[in-house]
């Protein structure tokens, strides 16, 4: 890094008015697109007083049930994704095998495919007229219009999140410490718990945060598969849709406010972690100097 004076000189080459115009534009973009909508969510949610908010969000039976539903669906699909992400990252970042690049690109598929199409796919598999529909009926297993369908769809949509965070971090760390552990006689699981997991813990946590945010908010895939039965298969985003269509603005915004609060917490957690990770990277440098 060059000394600050030189950086200061080379960084601001534009005339001051251009610089301030651009900074003004940034304030404007962020205000109009992000800040005002967030403020509006809370304004409308609390416009009829805090009792009304509690009534709509926490006392209302169907809304409360939607919260539980979102909680369980998110918990289970994030858990599946943690196992998947760690396993895939280990395989892909530590070994070379044929089809490795293809496997990595395939995991990106859920980013590209419309969530609605994802819902449709599971419908075609497990719906009443689906490929496994008759078989599931015989055994009395319900997937579509029931919780397992919601979990499947949410897991599909969030599949890349944790894996994508872990793969580059594992590749950057390299296998040396793990090789050393194995050479010194550690068992595979000892190496995994004492070297691998501590090394990737920040990336893993980061991935979990992103994955949770996405899982809580999933709408398209879930709306196809849930059947939208109030008090049974409605998640929070679906509940918002239902209340919006019933013109219950207060109710819709009360749930929206809770979800917005969670996403703001997500952003704060993300910013904090970036701060910590940067600090922990900078420290050893300072010691060396």
């Amino acid at each position: 890094m060059t000394e600050p004076a030189a950086r200061g000189f080379s960084r601001s080459r534009e005339p001051a008015w251009v610089k301030w115009l651009l900074i003004g534009a940034v304030y404007l973009i962020v205000t109009v697109l992000i800040v005002v909508p967030v403020v509006q969510v809370f304004c409308i949610a609390f416009s009829a007083g805090i009792e009304m908010f509690i009534q709509k969000a926490l006392v209302d039976h169907d809304s409360r049930h939607a919260m539980w539903m979102t909680f369980w669906v998110t918990l289970i699909s994030v858990t599946i994704n943690i196992f998947f992400g760690v396993a895939l990252a280990w395989a892909v970042a530590r070994f070379k095998f044929p089809g490795r690049t293809l496997l990595i690109s395939m995991v990106d598929l859920p980013f590209a495919i419309s969530p609605v199409a994802v819902g449709l796919m599971f419908m075609l598999l497990f719906g009443r007229q689906g490929f496994f529909g008759g078989w599931l009926d015989e055994w009395g297993i319900e997937i579509v219009f029931s919780t397992p369908g919601l979990i499947l769809a949410t897991t599909f949509v969030t599949l890349p999140f944790i894996a994508r965070e872990l793969i580059p971090v594992m590749e950057a760390i390299g296998p040396d410490e793990e090789l050393a552990a194995i050479t010194l006689g550690a068992s595979g699981w000892q190496m995994f718990w004492m070297i691998t997991i501590p090394n990737i813990r920040w990336a893993l946590l980061y991935g979990i945060i992103l994955c949770t945010a996405r899982a809580m908010g999933e709408f398209g895939a879930v709306s196809v598969l849930s059947g939208k039965i109030a008090g049974l298969t409605e998640t929070m985003p679906l509940r918002i849709d239902k209340l919006f269509n019933e013109h219950d603005e207060q109710g819709a915004f009360a749930i929206a406010a809770i979800l917005t609060l969670f996403s703001l917490i997500t952003l704060a957690a993300k910013a904090l972690m970036e701060h910590w990770v940067l600090a922990s990277i900078k420290k050893p440098d300072a010691d060396e100097l």
Partner: peptide
């Protein structure tokens, strides 16, 4: 502002739709 830029990734799309429709 740098942190806020990620809000569209974190905010459920249904919430975004609801608020924007209302605004």
């Amino acid at each position: 502002i740098d942190s806020l830029i990620d809000l569209p990734f974190a905010l459920p799309t249904a919430v975004a739709g609801l608020v924007y429709a209302n605004l």
